[in-house]
Design a protein around this nucleic acid. Sequence first.
DNA 1: TGTAAATCGATAAAAAAATATCGATTCGAG
DNA 2: CTCGAATCGATATTTTTTTATCGATTTACA
Lengths: 212, 212
Amino acid sequence: MEGKTAEISKAAFLRFPAYLRYLKAEEAAGVGYVSSSEIAEDMHLSAVCVRKDLALVASEPGKPRLGFAVGKLIGDLERALGYHLKTHACVVGAGRLGRAFLVYDGFEHYGIDVVAAFDISPAQVGALRGKPIYPMERLKEIAERENVRLGILTVPGEAAQQACDAMVEAGITAILSFAPAYVRVPEGVTLRCEDLAASLASLSAETEKSGA
Amino acid sequence: MEGKTAEISKAAFLRFPAYLRYLKAEEAAGVGYVSSSEIAEDMHLSAVCVRKDLALVASEPGKPRLGFAVGKLIGDLERALGYHLKTHACVVGAGRLGRAFLVYDGFEHYGIDVVAAFDISPAQVGALRGKPIYPMERLKEIAERENVRLGILTVPGEAAQQACDAMVEAGITAILSFAPAYVRVPEGVTLRCEDLAASLASLSAETEKSGA
DNA sequence: TGTAAATCGATAAAAAAATATCGATTCGAG
DNA sequence: CTCGAATCGATATTTTTTTATCGATTTACA
C-alpha cells in the first residue's frame, strides 16, 4: 500500500512534456500563476483533462481564483518525468542525424548526458565539439566503462538489426531507434521506434482529412 | 452513412507504421503469408488487437489456416496511411538536424518529397546533394511556387515562434516541430511537436520503472 | 477422401480514458 | 466587511479502446 503515488495513466504521461514546454514559456513571460482553463484553451485541451493531469503531479493543490504556481508546477512535472535522474546515453551511427544528437545541447535539461557516438566507418571516427566518435568495435568497452544505459540508433535500415544486437551485447537496456526498419530485441530491453518519415506522413494524412 | 470507410481509431492508426515495418521485413525474408497470431507474438501485441487492426485496412479477408498475404497487406496499409499521395515538404532551419532531413532518402517511400530547406544564416545557404538551401526571405515565394504544404521545423527553441509564423504566412498548413519550445499556431494549421529529448527521457524513465 | 488443427471474423465484456456536472473554497471589487 | 465571480477537486457519465469468447471456414495431412 503506497501512500499517494497514484497510477499515472499512459496517455497523461505523454502529455506532460507538452505542459512543461508551455509552462516554461509562461514562466519566461513572467507569469506567476496559471489556471487550468487558461492552459486548456492555449493547448487545445479540455479544462477537465488538464485539471486531472495536474492533480496527478502537483505537490500542492491549485488555489481557487488564482490557479497553479508556474514555477512549482514545472518542478513537479520534471520530477514526475524523471528529469532529475542522471543517465548516460550514446549514439550508434554517426551520420547526419547521429551527429545532430551527439552535439545537441538540449538533453541536459532532461537529465541525459550523451557521452559518445559510434560508427562502423573509420572515416567518421574522431570527435565533434569535444564529444568523441569511436569505432563500433569499442562500443562494449566504452559503454561498460561509462555506464551507458540508453542508446540512440541512427543507422541505415539495413544495418539496424546488427547494430541493435551490438548495443544489447554492450549492456544497453533502452533503445530509441530512428532506423526505418523492424528490429528485434530480447526480453528485458526496451525498444521504441521513432519513424520520422511515418510521423511526417501521418501528419500529412491528417491534414488532408480535415482540410479538404 | 458512408459505405464501408469505417472509422479507423486513432490508436490503431498509430500502430500501422509498425505493422508496415514488420511486414516489409517479412516480405524481404521471402514470407508469403503471415497469420495475425504470428504478427502479434513478434510485435508483442495481442492477437485480437492485430486482427481488428488488419480488418480495418485489409482489402481481402485473411484465409483461415494461412493468414494474410504479405504483399497485399503492405499495399493496403500504405494506402490507408496515405503514402500513395504525393506531398511536397520543406525544412526550416538548416542545422545538423535540418540537413539530415533534407537529404534523408527514406521519405520517398512515404509519398513525401522534401524540396528545399531554409535558414536565416547566409552561411548555410547553398545546396546539399542537389537539394537547395535558401535564405528565409524566400520561404513564401518558393513554398507557393512548389506548392509546399508540409514544413519541418528544426530551429533553436528561441527562434521557433518566429520561424513558425513565417511558415504559416507562406501557406504551410501542417508543421512537424522539433524545436524544444512551445509555439502557437492559428486555427487551421496542424502542429505536431516531436520533442526528441523528452522522448528519450521518457524512455529512460520507463526503463527505470520496470527495471529496478 | 475424410479428419483434425488452426485460423478468421463477429459479438460481447472489460478496461481505460475523456468529458460532464456540482458543491466548496477563496480572491478581489465595491 | 460583504457579495459575487471564478476556480478547484471530486463524483458520475459517456465514449473510446482493448481484451475475451465462440462458431464457421479452410487448409494440411493421413
